[in-house]
Design a protein around this nucleic acid. Structure first.
Length: 600
RNA sequence: GCCCCUGUAGCUCAAUUGGACAGAGCAAUGGACUUCUAAUCCAUAGGUUCCGCGUUCGAAUCGCGGCAGGGGCGCCA
């Protein structure tokens, strides 16, 4: 936001260095000054200059020499267009900006751009984000919610950062797990069907758990039980074969139950505000994916060990690595059936060729790190330049305090159950804090706040760390949480509502409160935070930023009066600042997929 | 045996990518609602950034070596 002024300062600084025959630094970086009683930008170039002198043989003590240089240069720099004061501090050169100028520029920029404030320059590279890919015939649990929430936030950030963005999902709709579920349904529950999209999906998951129990060997099982289990297992295998052969009755059974799961998924994605552009179904990718294996064999990348062994790619050998790192990937079973790797390779080709994807991001759990490293390396060997821009956004597990969640074992915490509990708790808080909130609006706020709390608990932890799910932590409404941020937005809204019209101009030509300066400073960091989060694929940066912005606003709220300010000029400026803060809070929350209520 | 990730306050996590005193929340104690919404704020307390060596003017951050925890390593996904 001050790049023009800072570039000019850099130019003058470099000219001074040259004129005084100081060694030139590689680059001049300006960073915000940490102590913001009055704020500006500082640079550490004098340390670099002093260090360069020391290296060239001069007998200097670097820190004190840096101090000396900074004092000299800061005097010589004065005056500088756009900066009020220039000073040397601890070897740094600090440029302080006129508060009024800076404040007006930030606030005006936000209010002019509104919902577009912070959007990055349009870019060419097409980004595809693949996320929210649960298996069908399971129910959507809190672990699945992590990929959905994380992936959506990432997609929003990348898109807002300026990249054309495609949202993709890759549901696992076939496999032994799916067949197991269908088998049990067909054998024991056929014809039953609970009402309600979520009820039906969850019921299917229970059938799966039950089927797994029936098919898992127990240590103390009797001869009779063992025979029964083996008979069940034979039925299941026969069913899989029948599916594979395309037997109409089995396909129909599969289609019907699959749709129940997809309906539930659809309902949940809608709740989360997710609109997937492309669905790649595993069942549809399966058959065509076999073709790429021949291509890889022909090109000498893969080795065919059939019929004794599978088709493999010796990646380390192909890359000439002497230490094992990517190892050997199996890309087709010896019986010719596909593997996960077969399908991911084929799918990547489709993404590159049919969707013109330049950067392909996979939001998938951390256990598949090696798998993706292998896939990316094979794509590279295969000759796809996009391979270097493939990125596995690995996220840690969501576990329960007592251990891992497992759909098979049935000890899962369902997303819908958590949401329901969240909303119940929000109801209680509203009943206590804001009982006058009208019923219709209240229902909407309950959803926004309850869901927001849940979303934020998934976004405020670094993606590569595990989350131990705990009801009270996940549904905290105090401190670093979505409701805290939403509450800042609500307070700003409340002030603006009472203020009426937003004044056309602000002056900020008075002794500003330190919290006011902090707030403006924080707002000004929003665009660069968007860019960093989008470039580094780190939703966490935005989650942290949103909290810090809210915190800064709460501090301002307590320290400075807005509509109660005595001086009309102060009042006008602060109303505009409040409007800018509200807008930035809303924009930041939107990027996280969290809604910003006007009252709560 | 090899590869990847993690290690920061009692607990959960940050730290503008190598910068100025390492910051928040939760939990604890005390305080602020006749005042723009107290889902807030203020105060007190809490640190050998796992350990060691190195690079650098400067290291939580980079390199090497350890230690601890998690994940993964040819026909699961």
């Amino acid at each position: 936001m001050f790049s023009i002024e800072l570039d000019a300062a850099t130019e003058k600084l470099l000219a001074l260095l040259e004129a005084n025959q100081y060694p030139l630094p590689g680059s001049v970086d300006w960073t915000p000054i940490p102590f913001r009683s009055q704020w500006g930008f500082g640079t550490a170039v004098c340390f670099q200059v002093a260090a360069a002198e020391a290296r060239s043989g001069k007998q200097v003590h670097v820190p004190s020499r840096a101090k000396e240089i900074s004092e000299h240069l800061s005097r010589a720099l004065d005056p500088l267009e756009g900066f009020e004061t220039i000073e040397a501090a601890n070897g740094y050169i600090n440029l302080y900006i006129n508060k009024s100028v800076y404040s007006n520029r930030v606030v005006n920029t936000v209010l002019e751009n509104a919902t577009e404030f912070g959007r990055g320059e349009p870019k060419d590279a097409i980004v595809m984000v693949e996320y929210a890919q649960p298996n069908t015939h399971h129910s959507f649990h809190i672990g699945h919610a992590r990929t959905a929430i994380l992936g959506e936030a990432l997609a929003r950030l990348v898109s807002f950062g300026g990249y054309p963005t495609i949202r993709a999902s890759y549901p696992g709709d076939i496999g032994l797990g799916v067949i197991t579920c269908i088998w049990a349904y067909d054998r024991f529950f056929k014809g039953q069907e609970p009402d309600g999209v979520h009820e039906r999906g969850q019921w299917l998951a229970k059938i799966y758990t039950e089927a797994t129990r029936l098919l898992t060997p127990r240590e103390d099982e009797t001869e009779e039980e063992r025979a029964q289990r083996e008979a069940y297992d034979a039925e299941r295998r026969a069913l899989y074969k029948a599916w594979d052969a395309g037997e109409p009755a089995v396909r129909e059974l599969w289609q019907e139950t699959r749709q129940w799961s997809l309906d539930e998924l659809d309902a949940i994605l809608q709740i989360l505000g997710i609109e997937i552009d492309v669905f790649f179904f595993e069942s549809e990718v399966d058959e065509p994916s076999k073709r790429i294996v021949d291509e890889l064999i022909e090109q000498g990348i893969a080795e065919d060990e059939r019929p004794e062994g599978p088709v493999i790619v010796k990646i380390d050998e192909k890359l000439g690595l002497d230490q094992e790192q990517y190892r050997t990937a199996v890309i087709l079973r010896s019986d010719g059936t596909t593997l996960y790797s077969t399908k991911d390779l084929a799918l990547a080709k489709v993404k590159f060729e049919d969707y013109d994807v330049d950067r392909s991001i996979y939001v998938v759990d951390v256990r598949q790190s090696l798998h993706f490293q292998q896939v990316f390396k094979i794509l590279e060997l295969w000759g796809f330049p996009q391979a270097k821009d493939c990125f596995h956004l690995a996220y840690g597990f969501v576990t329960l305090p007592e251990g891992a969640m497992s759909s098979r074992a049935g000890n899962v915490v369902l997303f819908m159950d958590v949401l329901e509990e969240a909303e119940r708790r929000v109801q209680d808080v509203i009943a206590e804090k804001n009982p006058d909130l009208p019923g219709k609006e209240r229902d909407r706020v309950v959803r926004q706040v309850g869901l927001g709390a849940l979303q934020y608990s998934m976004l405020s932890v670094d993606n590569n760390k595990d989350i131990v799910f705990n009801w009270d932590d996940a549904l905290s409404f105090e401190g670093q949480s979505a409701p805290y941020i939403q509450n800042a937005h609500v307070r700003a809204s409340s002030i603006l509502k009472r203020a009426g019209e937003i004044p056309e101009e602000s002056g900020f030509e008075y002794e500003m409160d330190p919290t006011e300066i902090e707030l403006i400073d924080k707002i000004s960091q929003f665009p660069s935070t968007v860019q960093r989060a989008a470039e580094d694929y780190k939703p966490l940066l935005m989650a942290t930023y949103a909290y810090e912005l809210a915190r800064t606003f709460h501090l301002f709220y307590h320290a400075a009066r807005v509509i109660q300010a005595d001086d009309p000029a102060v009042r006008a400026s602060r109303i505009r600042l409040t409007a800018a803060a509200k807008q930035t809070l809303a924009n930041a929350l939107a990027l996280l997929g969290i809604q910003a209520p006007a009252a709560m």
